[in-house]
Design a binder for these strands. Structure first.
Lengths: 326, 326
DNA sequence: GCCGATTGAGATAACGTTATCCCGATACCG
DNA sequence: CGGTATCGGGATAACGTTATCTCAATCGGC
């Protein structure tokens, strides 16, 4: 930059002014500086700029898996681009150690704010960061034990909608196969399901199967749910991955079991009948998250908000199958 | 940091030494400094550190879509973590403007290196960056007209393998439905397919259908390929998205058309028969890309390398169906 | 008992920006 | 014609690190 100044025969400060196109510099000088910049191909160093300015214009996104389908992240990138902010993302792999490493790296890099899909683990390491002014918004899951902004899907309403949709189509014995309840969303959905069963006067015991996503576990859950005298006539799956696993197993059997899946995905229309799903409003979640994060950055004293975004039932066929015994 | 020094009653330099755990500082002083750091909860600022050091320990990944399945990116993150480098990723959305914006942002942030899935567009903007010492590795597609490192899948061998696999199972009339040939991989695969047809003495005209991924276009291609006197008995799809689209349409028809897909995906085992695919070696691509990038960073004078990673045929059923007329 | 080697730690100068302060020149008003 | 706004632009001091240089103190050797 000092070279550019020398080349153009102006002061350092003037080059800076030209780079940040400050209006108070004469047209002729601007030209001369521009030429010098091109000549020496000078490239501004954001590190120094950010250091001096204090802000970085950068948002961090710490998500489970970058390389998985994540429509919320796409919405986030879009919303941030509109606000002229750069989003830089990294995976936490749902590993407590990695999450911490990623988030702390972003803090040390002084990102203006962080979007986090938190793991259900101890987030004590965040306390000093938050105290030091970190702007953070949790997405999809809350941060346990800490009062931070978050935006979640309405898991309870989603399960209730799925359940009553199946009831409306004549089902009385509905099973739920879900993810490990140590995961927040899985826990919330399972709890909501138990409440549904209880409200309709049944016992949930044989009807709810949660645990890790492993082929054997899923197979066993499916067999347990669909066999015996009180066999289920409909299944609600706890997330997109499980929907795939369940549907995969239905290729080979011809039972007319109704299925409603949680989370939409491109696989939903791969089979006959198409999969009825409870879809999250990804765009709304992403937009809301960015808005909340920007608000918090602008004013760290903003009261903490916990936003719940509505979900939508998308009937496509698999959830409208009547019970086979009916 | 100066506060920490005052609190601990030592010089600034000593705090820095403790932070970077320099061995030449006495145990007692280390304790005192550590205590002061905890007291004031001091958090080091990487911006200043990077500015001073010259390097950032950060790699940028500019990929088509963060929120899409991208096993290569996962391998990249893993390999980078092992090398104690941070990978920060952003989407280019296959948009020339966005790609340029993302890459230039990363350059101004002085990332040590960039991994790019380049768009088939003019990359002139990279010339000055490369001249200024940018370390860049192109993944999956080359950078047109510029001599930069790249690591690609062996698209030609993949198509040849798929083709001869189908021939070995009795097929003589094989169709190819691929993506828009303005995309490098699509172009390479289509060309390889044409060569296969020619080599086996046929005419490719009715057998090759490339273009954008739009429902109508795909439907038309499929009908054209599968109707008439010279109807194809087997289909090769040009990428994972097309495999899904094609397979989706096969739900409703009962022809025993053989299918081999390019790119593996979790959908491959969703239907009967399971989808035979040509799979890319994602882990090898990711590892190679990181290795090449690190080499280039370590020594910018390293000769440019273009690496082609072998692909593997995974027979699962759909590619082993005999021709229906046979 | 003195001197050289070794070790621990402080002062100072960068790294590449931008903001503050200030000054000179021009123009305008009385 | 003198004085004062106004505007363009230059010198300098930060921002938070680390590296170089220097120096004081301790220890061992002769």
């Amino acid at each position: 930059m000092v070279d550019v100044a020398r080349e153009a025969g102006v002061a350092l400060r003037t080059v800076s002014r030209v780079v940040n196109d400050d209006a108070t510099v004469g047209a002729e000088l601007v030209e001369r500086v521009r030429a010098a910049i091109a000549n020496l191909d000078y490239r501004p160093d954001e590190r120094a700029r950010h250091l001096r300015l204090g802000v970085t214009g950068t948002l961090g996104a710490a998500v489970r898996q970058l390389s998985h389908v994540n429509p919320v992240l796409r919405a986030v990138e879009r919303a941030a681009r509109k606000a002229d902010l750069m989003v830089l993302a990294a995976s936490t792999e749902d590993d407590e150690q990695i999450e911490r490493h990623v988030v702390e790296s972003m803090c040390r890099r002084r990102f203006d704010g962080i979007l986090l899909e938190p793991i259900g683990a101890d987030h004590g390491y965040l306390v000093p960061e938050l105290a030091a002014g970190l702007s953070l918004v949790a997405v999809d899951r809350p941060v346990l034990g800490l009062d931070v902004d978050c935006v979640l899907s309405d898991n309870v309403a989603g399960i209730e909608t799925a359940y009553s949709h199946l009831v409306a189509h004549g089902h009385r014995r509905i099973a739920y196969i879900g993810d490990d309840e140590r995961i927040f969303t899985a826990q919330e959905r399972a709890t909501a399901f138990r409440a549904c069963v209880r409200a309709s006067g049944g016992a949930a015991d044989h009807m709810i199967h949660t645990g890790p996503i492993l082929p054997d576990r899923i197979q066993a859950a499916l067999e347990s749910a669909l066999s015996g005298p009180g066999a289920a006539t409909a299944i609600i799956t706890g997330n997109a991955t499980l929907s795939v696993e369940i549907v995969r197993r239905f290729r080979d059997r011809s039972d007319d079991v109704a299925v409603v899946g949680f989370d939409d995905s491109e696989l939903a229309t791969l089979l006959r009948p198409d999969l009825t799903v409870v879809a999250q409003d990804d765009a709304a979640i992403g937009d809301t998250a960015i808005t909340m994060l920007r608000n918090r950055i602008a004013d760290p004293a903003t009261p903490v908000r916990k936003v719940t975004v509505p979900v939508t039932l998308r009937p496509r066929g698999s959830g409208e199958t009547p019970p086979k015994s009916a």
